[in-house]
Nucleic acid binder design. Sequence first.
DNA 1: TAAATATATAGACGAGCATCTATGAATAGC
DNA 2: GCTATTCATAGATGCTCGTCTATATATTTA
Lengths: 97, 97
Amino acid sequence: MNSIADPIEFARALSDRTRQEIMKLCCCEWRSVGELADELDVTQPTVSHHLAFLRDANLVHIRPEGRKTFYALNQDAVASCCGVLMLNYAPDVKEPT
Amino acid sequence: MNSIADPIEFARALSDRTRQEIMKLCCCEWRSVGELADELDVTQPTVSHHLAFLRDANLVHIRPEGRKTFYALNQDAVASCCGVLMLNYAPDVKEPT
DNA sequence: TAAATATATAGACGAGCATCTATGAATAGC
DNA sequence: GCTATTCATAGATGCTCGTCTATATATTTA
């Protein structure tokens, strides 16, 4: 169901501070675009731009509701991508980290 | 001993294809700069540039030996950073992934 | 239908970055 | 000591990207 985890696209999604802050804000609850913009000292179009990036990378869930659109982090995708990174770049490390 | 894992610097290090290829090549064995440049269709200065980036991010081990300098991936740092990402962005995911 | 609200999109601008060529610095071998 | 080899650094260039303002699109409400 999920697209195949691409380690480079995943890393690019995480390589910006604003995007990581967005991810943190919508990690465990649904957030509207306006809420995110309010808490993130950037404009609403900037937030929309980053959300589009995260959406293309399959890193957020989307739920339109009336005029608002709610986003929530796709934790499973994050876990999957981290798993790929571990397999690629930490194959000899024994759990736990 | 290790510097604190910064998720943004870690992601930026992984956000370039050439750097990920370098990481893969020196993941499990020591590689000289020249070896990496030969296998990576980029010039030697470009490889040195990326290795400097990875070194600043504490993602590679270094071993000068005569005229050559060997690099090996710091798998522990990768695992540590992935652990931070999992804690931040996949706190509700149950193992195994 | 008109107005207000919420989000997405388009275009512009400046900073950062990946790459190259040229060159400097360090080491090994003759 | 001189030459060849290996790597790092400096500077230039073109492209990508993060952010903004302005505007379009969609939805709710009066």
